[in-house]
Design a protein around this nucleic acid. Structure first.
Lengths: 106, 106
DNA sequence: GTATATTTGGACATAATTTGTCAAGAAATA
DNA sequence: TATTTCTTGACAAATTATGTCCAAATATAC
């Protein structure tokens, strides 16, 4: 089964699971605690560097976090579109097609 | 079979199919011709209003254009990610899940 | 070839969005 | 109640998007 948590909720869960105060994780990630608070409540996005740090600090798979991160972005981009399913299908085909092109080139 | 053209290429094809100069379509869409030129070559994105106008002018399905438009956006967002397929799958599940929530609420 | 029409490119200003910071207030805990 | 933790909103700075102009490049017509 899939994990549908947002990247923010994931980070909060990891942090609370380790009994770490927000303030401390913010320091480790080198951001203001208000920024981290907003990230955990999905008011802001983390950046890739933060995600890498989080994966190291809590020793979790970076890819899993990245999937959560990027799927959030896609989610916000097209959540209100009726044809969301078709959009994703076409997007995937476009990426796959591009890869066939760029592989041929080298 | 799917249509993998970018929204820009789609617009250009429609315009050329109608033998209409870029300058004229730009006027109809109320944008600078250099802006339309960039849109047709995928250097910029059109906005939704332009897409609606294009669908009216050339009498094509608006949804088809919107799918092209949004899949471009998703494409650029995640084209370099190895787990792109998984990302899209999770994004779709998130949208579907959200819809079950919001339907229950009313 | 020259002239004309069409398209492209780049510089620039303005607007919108994102990102980072701070400090005070609210909530939770001791 | 006192202390720690978290949230909120306001603000400035940085980044990105958008719109405009005009000259250069390209294509087409004469």
């Amino acid at each position: 089964m899939q994990n549908l948590e947002s990247i923010g909720v994931k980070i909060r869960n990891l942090r609370e699971g380790a009994d770490m105060p927000l303030r401390k994780l913010a320091a480790l990630l080198d951001v203001d605690q208000s920024t981290l608070s907003k990230i955990e409540r999905d008011e802001r996005k983390p950046n890739i560097k933060m995600i890498e740090e989080v994966s190291k600090i809590f020793n979790v798979d970076k890819d899993e976090l990245l999937i959560s991160f990027y799927s959030d972005i896609v989610f916000y981009e097209i959540q209100d579109e009726n044809s969301f399913s078709k959009i994703l299908q076409v997007a995937e085909a476009k990426i796959q097609y591009q890869r066939t092109i760029t592989n041929k080139k080298k």
